[in-house]
Each structure stands twice: as structure tokens, then as C-alpha cells.
Design a protein around this nucleic acid. Structure first.
Length: 136
RNA sequence: CCAGAGGGCUGGAUGGUUGCUGCGGGGGGGCUGGCUUGCCACUCCCCGGCAGAGGAAAGUCCGGGCUUCACAGGAUCAGGAUGCUGGUUAACGGCCAGCGGGGGCGACCCCAGGGAAAGUGCCACAGAAAACAGACCGCCUCGCUCCGGCGCGGUAAGGGUGAAAAGGUGCGGUAAGAGCGCACCGCGGGACUGGCGACAGGCCCCGGCAAGGUAAACCCCAUCCGAAGCAAGACCAUAUAGGGGCAUGAUCCGCCUUGGCGGGUGCUGGCGAUCCUGCCAGAGAUGCCCGGGUAGGUCGCUUGAGAUGUCUGGCAACAGGCAUCCGUCAGAUGAAUAGCCAUCCACGGGCCAGGCUACACGGCCAGCCCCGGACAGAACCCGGCUUACAGGCACUCUGGAUUG
């Protein structure tokens, strides 16, 4: 009951361990995790400390006022959430927590560009984590 | 048809696919609790159903509801807001109808629009002089004279400066002048008439005119105003835990075992500050210092000055009556109401260049591809204001042109 079973359950429950809610959780990932910068968004990944550990992978979304007004920020977060829902179940590692930070250019990006960037950034982060000798 | 004015409505459509939030329905599973042994409550999963952002949801600028600080009255001193009149409203700084001033040929638009004969301040530069006004040039009388002028006065009609210099025109008057006198216009005051009133008046009387601006400068006058906000507030859960220290802790009377108890005065707190009166709360209270724990859940939370239609009163804002509708119908909380794709549709711009019309500028119709679909996201709820906005839709009115 491994990879095949995992994809099925991921399709059923795409939100792994639900999104992040607490500011402290965001700060913890920012402090301990690694960062990869794309044109439309920045991706951070890392392990949460054990005291707030939960099963499965997690994600968090951030859009600051630099990105635009409320409408632009909401749209950016929605598109990122859709991206997570459609593709992260295949890409995510269960022990990690991912944070997506929207940038100004995201509004002008197409859906295809966002997909490509997601694949590129997750691959980069996973390679870096393996090199630093973090145990899987 | 062209140019313009005013208020109103609207704020892309359809389909596919993958999702989110709320509500109730059906089926199934489960720890537990209640017990009339099968149901109810709780929780999880699956299936299908319904509903799900705006005219400004925005800025947070006013006014309320609601909640907490128990509260009420008076005096003094502060602070803030508003500012023509009359209505309207739960209330307003909103709205409606008028008045006054200004702009426009006009429809209409704009105005913090009380007081400068209570006081203070400020008014640059220019100019002789700018607020107990003021003689630089000029004009005039008189005196002196070396005949060029000079001096003492008078004068605000003329020149010059300025945003602003003792109202304007004419006649009289005078040495020259001047409201010095008169007529008309303007101004101020009063009476009268009309209007609830702001105010208006081709009439009457009085005054020669008594002379700036600025109150989005202080100020004066009138009216109104307690503060903080849903992170309000209530309950539950959790917590070594209703934490510790210091200072202040008055006085009188009675009882009684040197100390305590009871009562009165007082004390402390009480919605801008101080004081007074009533009243309420407290045996603690207040101030300062040190340390610790939280910010999880439920309620508040969506039906309300409600919407639509119609009738009556009113110029209108609006008020009142009747009928219907609100069936769970947005109630999220790192914050749902969407992501992606396709087709259409309106409009604008660009490219290619076809048809019709025209002397020409140009106009109309059709085709193709590309780009663009505004401003903007509920956060307790209403009434307004302000600001942003691609366009589209009719309506009323004004000015001009043409035709009959």
C-alpha cells in the first residue's frame, strides 16, 4: 500500500493536512526552511517543529499589500490554491510544509506558466533538501 | 441632425470540467451518554438538492441601532461640531422646497451664506499717504524775488501708485475746490404693504453719506453633543492559580477579657474636569512594583427605520393605509462565494484593403486577425455623504440648423 494507494488518497483528499492558519507556523517554516524564487511566486519548504506536527504535507498562502489591492490579492491566492489542489498531491512530500508567497507578476502570468514554475521550484527545493543531508 | 443640461436604470451571457462555504434530506459506520432495547443526542464517511458579493461591498467622513462602563439633577470652567429660512426624518453636517449672491443666450450650475457700528491681530509690493487717514505732481490766494523760481497756507476736481484712496452724473457755487448746496441714480435707517420666515417692494419719510478687507485669524452669538467599540460583550473549556509585595487604612459612640465586635459620620469608586445634592456598589478600595497564564470553541450573527405593488395627503423630501413576499436562502473568520477551457455578444484601438456616396475632408456597410471587458471583494447591522468607474439603455429639458 504505497505509491499507487497514495495517489488515490491524495485525489480524494487533496489538502493533505489542511492549510496553515497560525502566524507562528508561517514564521517557523520561514526560519527553518529553504526558499526558491520564481517570477510569479516564491516557494518555501521545510519541516515544522514536532510540537505542532500533523500527518501529511501542508501548505500556506501569503499575498502582501505589495501584490495589489484586495481583489488582486484574493485572485492571486485563489489561483495558487487551485494550483496546489491540482498538482501538489503528486509533487508534495508528506513530511514537508510548503509556503507560497505571491509576487506582483503573478497577475500577468498564464496558467501554463504557473504550472511550469511550480514543477521547477519544487524540484529545486527537493534537490537542495537532499543535498543538505536532511533525512527523508 | 448638431451642441449641451438634468436625474434614473444597468454593471456581460451560455456551456463543460475540477473545487469551496452554509443549510436541511437520504443511506451507512462508530467511541460515548440517556434509556420505555429501539430511538434520540454526538461524531465521521458517501449520495443527490438548494443558496452564495457591490453600486459603490471602498474611504471610514457624519448620523443611529446594539453592547459595556449602574444612574439622575444643578453650578462653574473647558472641549468639539454645526451655521440664510421653512419643512422632512429614528437621527444627521443628509434630503426637499424656498431666499440672497455669483456664472451661463438658455436648460441649469456654484456658494462654511450668522456677527467686522464688542475687542485684538494681519493687510506684502508699489505709493506722498493704507485706518487718531494722507499734499508727490498739479490747481489757487498771499508774500518775497537776482524773474529761473522760493516760502506760508488753501484744495481731494485732475495725474500717478495699488486689489482697495472719503459713491456717480449734471447744474450751481468758489480765489481754486469740495455733498458746500440742489436734482436724479446709488447707500444707510424708519414706517407701510406682502410673506410662517429668510426676504422683497416702480410708493412715503429721515440722513449729505456717518467712509476697507479678512471670522476655512483669534473671537462673539445661537443650537447640539458622555466615552469606547463586535478584538463591543456573554458563556464554556484550559490554567502550578479567584498570584505576591509595599504604601494609605480616619474619627466618634456603645458593648466587652489589654483586643475585637456592632452602629453612625466619613472613606474609595461612579461615564470631559472640579464642587454640591440624591442614589448605587464596596468591606475592602486606590496607587505603584514584580511574576505567571491565555487569546481555543459556542453565542452575538443576520428579519430589517425590510422589499414590491397600489391608494390617500403633500409642489416635493416624506408620511399614512391596504395587499403580497421574505420557503434554510451570503454569513466567512489566514477569511468561502472560485480555478481552468470553449463559444457568443457589445464597444474601442490597430492591420489588410472591398463596396456605396462625395469636388474634397469625410461618412455608411461588410470581412479578417490581434489586443483590451471598468472601478473594485461583505466582515455586527442600517440611513447618508465622499471618492473611483470600460461601457450600455431609455427619459425629460435647453440652444441652434434644416424640412413641411
Amino acid at each position: 500500500m504505497h505509491s499507487a494507494n497514495q495517489t488515490i488518497s491524495a485525489q480524494k483528499r487533496p489538502f493533505g493536512g489542511v492549510g496553515l492558519r497560525k502566524r507562528a507556523q508561517f514564521l517557523a517554516v520561514q526560519k527553518h526552511g529553504l526558499k526558491a524564487i520564481g517570477a510569479g511566486f516564491v516557494l518555501q519548504a521545510g519541516q515544522l517543529p514536532e510540537n505542532i506536527a500533523a500527518p501529511g504535507w501542508r501548505y500556506g498562502l501569503t499575498a502582501s499589500k505589495k501584490v495589489g489591492n484586495a481583489v488582486v490579492r484574493n485572485r492571486a491566492k485563489r489561483r495558487l490554491r487551485a494550483l496546489v489542489r491540482d498538482f501538489m498531491p503528486e509533487l508534495a512530500r508528506p513530511e514537508l510544509t510548503y509556503i507560497f508567497i505571491a509576487r506582483q507578476a503573478l497577475a500577468g502570468q498564464s496558467w501554463q506558466q504557473m504550472q511550469q514554475e511550480l514543477i521547477r521550484l519544487t524540484g529545486k527545493l527537493h534537490r537542495q533538501l537532499d543535498q543538505t543531508g536532511q533525512p527523508r
